[in-house]
Design a protein around this nucleic acid. Structure first.
Ligand SMILES: [Mn+2]
Ligand SMILES: [Mn+2]
Ligand SMILES: [Mn+2]
Ligand SMILES: [Mn+2]
Lengths: 222, 222
DNA sequence: TGCCCTCTTTTGAATAATCAAAATCACTTA
DNA sequence: TAAGTGATTTTGATTATTCAAAAGAGGGCA
């Protein structure tokens, strides 16, 4: 049965797998990501394998089957459309919608989701800049550069803020670091592990390496 | 723990209790309403009693405690605001929103619900004419008369359609029997178990006793 | 080669919810 | 008052999910 637990596992496996698409995902990684003890992950993975959602190599790791990936993308679509809806239609803050969507993604029907999607004019990206899979299960795989890798003097725009932590998102918002915002890199000091950028409104912001890695940018086309 | 199962039981107990507010609700009634075998209801009720949500008299029946009633009203509020939202904002048909709300009522947070309520300008009634409890747990208890009890020649307006069955709701909608619609009773034949009404648009509709009981009306004030 | 450390699996147990079927209870009815 | 009947409870199982703790596997290091 596809319970919300199964949906959460499959979605998390997909997300973790993205970080290392070539390798099998080790059980330990999954257990940590799911916040369960390793034995729980093993038990669950066996059930997922029985349902044909993952391929499981004992002591090797796991990988989603095609069916598993489709399910993951379907859940991800629900999650991201819901986040967009909560921000655009209901006016919630982008720092709080991830939590809300985490529950709603298991409760909303395809029909309701379709209405939400339609009402928002079918957005391609969620409020954090994450691509929204299509109803058919396609997702855009545009390679983005972390702000921390930019060369000094270059310009770019924020494409994605890759952290669901509410405090970080509030920090980013307060400093105008939202998807679509343009800026140029003023300085980058690898010894100091810090970069300084200037936004269009002349405001300058300095970020440490950890934070700069979470801001994914798109090079200014030209 | 307040699982969605607990919420469903408590809500159903509240609803069933309304039909006979003076008596204890018998286990059999509850089991039937919840679509479980009697033993399951007994087991669940013991758990609800342990959580302080119901008073349970073995072989007598049950009654919600104050806490249980508050929880029931809270769930009912979520259910009815969601139904309204699905109809008014997302444009679903009133015949399908009950099912959708049945799941969403357990997933939506108070914050999101408050935004929905605000966006709709705080409706007092859901699409079927059922009163929406306040956030504080108050609910209007206006006594309504079933259409089947009206005297010939009198006028009234539809206040509530007391049936969640999609087919019946589609039938009612097709014939213009929506909350707020005014009409007068043309004839009532108890032998034939049928009543005929005329709407403002001159359309006449004949209903059998079963159907007429499900249409609750408000006497024309005057 | 043998021990050790880490990761993973197994085992045993718990909670929540449910069913099937047997047992029990509280009333009627004869 | 004994038997019968219908509602309710009890008992024994099952499924899904989880944890704690013991056991096992494998690779690295002395
Ligand atoms: Mn989730
Ligand atoms: Mn997001
Ligand atoms: Mn429900
Ligand atoms: Mn309703």
């Amino acid at each position: 049965m596809i319970t919300s637990t199964v949906e959460n596992y499959v979605k998390q496996i997909y997300l973790q797998q993205q970080e290392n698409p070539a390798d099998l995902l080790p059980m330990g990684k999954l257990a940590t990501a799911m916040n369960v003890v390793p034995g729980t992950a093993t038990a669950m993975v066996k059930a997922l394998a029985d349902s044909g959602l993952v391929d499981y190599e004992p002591r090797g790791g796991i990988r989603l089957t095609h069916g598993g990936e489709q399910l993951a993308l379907h859940v991800l679509r629900r999650h991201r459309i819901l986040e967009s809806f909560l921000v655009e239609i209901l006016g919630l803050d982008w720092s709080e919608v991830h939590e809300e969507a985490e529950t709603l993604e298991h409760a909303v029907s395809d029909k309701v989701l379709e209405r939400m999607d339609h009402l928002m004019n079918r957005p391609q990206y969620d409020p954090h800049g994450d691509p929204i899979p299509t109803a058919k299960g396609q997702i855009s795989h545009i390679r983005l550069m972390p702000l921390s890798d930019m060369a000094p003097g270059t310009s770019a725009q924020v494409a994605r803020v890759a952290d669901q932590d509410a405090a970080f998102l509030r920090f980013a918002e307060k400093n105008g670091l939202l998807p679509g915002v343009k800026f140029s890199l003023i300085s980058s000091d690898s010894q100091a592990d810090a970069v300084t950028i200037r936004l269009r409104n002349k405001q300058t912001i300095t970020l440490g390496g950890k934070a700069a890695e979470k801001i994914l940018v798109r090079k200014k086309t030209g």
